[in-house]
Design a protein around this nucleic acid. Structure first.
Lengths: 131, 131
DNA sequence: CTTGAGCTTCCAGTGACTGGAACCCCTATA
DNA sequence: TATAGGGGTTCCAGTCACTGGAAGCTCAAG
């Protein structure tokens, strides 16, 4: 398979696939004309990567997960540890965003949003004490 | 004030303050020895930036907000529009993270996490249909 | 033979910093 | 007066995970 077909079937853009090769996540062979020649296993790996990335795993996590996937002597505890670590990072991010959301939505609600200049959003940012 | 004092009082690291000057968010004067000389208004701006960044506004949003803050003929509707736009981006991010969280927490719960190799997390990533 | 799609490499840019090197300035102390 | 240190300065490179673009090669169709 050429890169275009693999891109289509895996849902990962050609540019990204080349990048993944660059950083050693996939190692397609080469045809005589210099084109990358992907096998089914390469496609499989890329699909795996696509799903892992969609779950928010970092590239380094993906590398680890791919390694575990291909290691038949892995222990599922290793996989679970990576996933739990990532899950807790997701939880932190959600918490942080919800805190922002909380503050910001109050400010937005308090701003009358008309043609006058006074604005509780700017007041808050400038450090004024809430009344 | 030198950069160290401003950093301390605004809570923004010196490196970041220099970066903000680089991109034109603050324009401190210079002392004869070449040191940046910050006035109270500069400190004020940096504190404003710190709060806006803490609410997740992008640097470009911050630039806009600072501009509105200093523009006495602003309309609060302009500020509110920026904030609402940002709020909806926050909401999207939260939704995306929660979707990841949902999938991932199910997978983590399903993985026994022991010394055996079989693992529903890897099965899912590799594209197996859930049974 | 030309056209156009698809492939190749390499370089640069994204956002918002952050680390580090190499150097200057200022004050205090031996 | 020499020196040590803790400021400050600039500039360059790296982060993360791509993405865009330029220049050039390959291949199939008309």
């Amino acid at each position: 398979m050429n890169i275009g077909e693999v891109a289509e079937r895996s849902g990962i853009p050609p540019k990204t696939i080349r990048y993944y090769e660059d950083i050693g996540l996939v190692r397609p062979q080469r045809s005589e004309n210099g084109y990358r020649a992907f096998r089914e296993t390469d496609l499989h790996k890329l699909t795996f990567l696509g799903r892992a990335r969609a779950l928010g795993f970092s590239i380094e996590d993906c590398r680890t997960l791919l390694g575990l996937y291909e290691d038949e002597s892995r222990e599922s505890a290793q996989v679970k540890a990576v996933a739990e670590e990532h899950l807790s990072e997701i939880d932190s991010k959600i918490a942080q965003l919800q805190a922002m959301r909380q503050t910001l939505s109050h400010l937005v609600a308090a701003c009358h949003g008309d043609d006058r200049p006074d604005c509780p959003i700017l007041s808050d940012l400038s450090g004024a004490q809430a009344g």
